[in-house]
Design a protein around this nucleic acid. Sequence first.
DNA 1: TCTGGGGTCCTTAACCGT
DNA 2: TCTGACGGTTAAGGACCC
Length: 486
Amino acid sequence: MRSAPTILHLDMDAFYASAEQASKPSLRGKAVIVGGLGPRGVVATASYEARRFGVHSAMPMAQARRLCPNGACLIPRFTLYREVSELVMGMLRALSPLVEPLSLDEAFVDLEAGGAAFDAAGARAVGERLRADITAATGLSGSVGLAGSKMLAKVASEEAKPDGLLLIEPGTERELLAPMSVRTLPGVGPATGEHLRRAGITTVGELAEAGEDELVRMVGKAHGAGLYRMALGLDDRPVVAERDAKSVSVEDTFDVDLHDRVRIRNEVQRLADRCVGRLRASGHSGRTIVLKVRRYDFSTLTRSETLRGPTDDPAVVREAAARLLEGVDTTGGVRLLGVGVTGLADYTQEDLFAQVRAAEADGDPGVAQESGTVAPDGAERVDVPSGAGEVEAPGGAAGAVGSVEGGGAPGDPGGGVVRYWAAGSDVRHAVYGPGWVQGSGVGRVTVRFERPGSAPGRARTFRVDDPELEPSDPLPLVGPAGGVSA
DNA sequence: TCTGGGGTCCTTAACCGT
DNA sequence: TCTGACGGTTAAGGACCC
């Protein structure tokens, strides 16, 4: 069954880094690295200029700085990326109602379903125009893959990068795939790749030769069967526009491992509250509470508890998380904590209260226990004085940072306002106007004053507590404040 | 100075009820 | 009544994706 190449996969090129370059003219053509800037940060995206130094995503930021000491390292600005993403997704939806976003910078489109294209020539024309329109509207480039299936369209856009388009003609897919690395296929990561390599399989062609039975034996039923079909270029998964969320979770990695049990408990409570905040914002409640703990040695464990009914009550989630924590040994230190909720239901508040009442009538401790909630503190965190929780256990780590406590900026929202200016963040100066933080340290912060569409601007340095300087929202890449062309 | 954060899906084992 | 097969649910972990 040979189908026309009318599945389109769009992948924006080095999305976060390109968006930063578009909004910060002085960074165009320069190495830009977007990611976490803390001692345990990793790279989210590197510009192509930075990739030439060997920097790539998921690499520890410290290593990236070593490889590319002159690169600009910036924190991600998701508000901006989301805005650009919505603009682009809107353009895709103009082509077809069947648009399946995979992330902020990637999506599938079923062109045939939208009547946008029915054959290779039509699909190619739509793809080329889309790329031009995206660049005109955002100043960014995207790569397009066109094929008869999602898997092949994705492989095609990957091959087309950067700033290209590739259409896989029906009938040519097996020859095209055969010499490619097995790692090209979606679903083959480091573990499966290594597994296959030990069996002497490194290319997609060898994968196809191995046969389904052999693959199933090696990597399991579902994975093996799927892998075999993909190696033959077979994939009939439809493009689906709406997908229901299945879980909501939040997690924090701490700059320094946590040892103090009290502090750990407090962090779990905070995470539970944040998680419920997100759960409610998404209009969901959930039944299963999950606690995640990553220990000093990077070993990760999860503990979960399923309630009698779904909840979005912070007290209930806090208590469940606290109970789960009691069963976890944290001696040695904890580098990450997370709280999640799965088994989502979109119950309304009314339904939920009805559930609670029913459960109370049942005498069910699972759901009804908000009455018996201990809740030592409200939403407010009871902060362990800095340092007090970090008194080193014998043989403590080299960290010794002390000043910045886990995740939070060392800002004091109360009085003196010593602000923390993260590199890459947006600011506005009363005199010089909008700009972005280039760097800060020893009581100073350097700001470059430029905006999307302007010429590269000049940098000025201020005291970190300069009253004329304040954080601000990102300027749009296009529109009144900016403009894609200078 | 190793290794983020937010997800999805699959596998395995234990357990319960039929 | 005992035993076994089977299905569903829960819990935990692992791989993978962007």
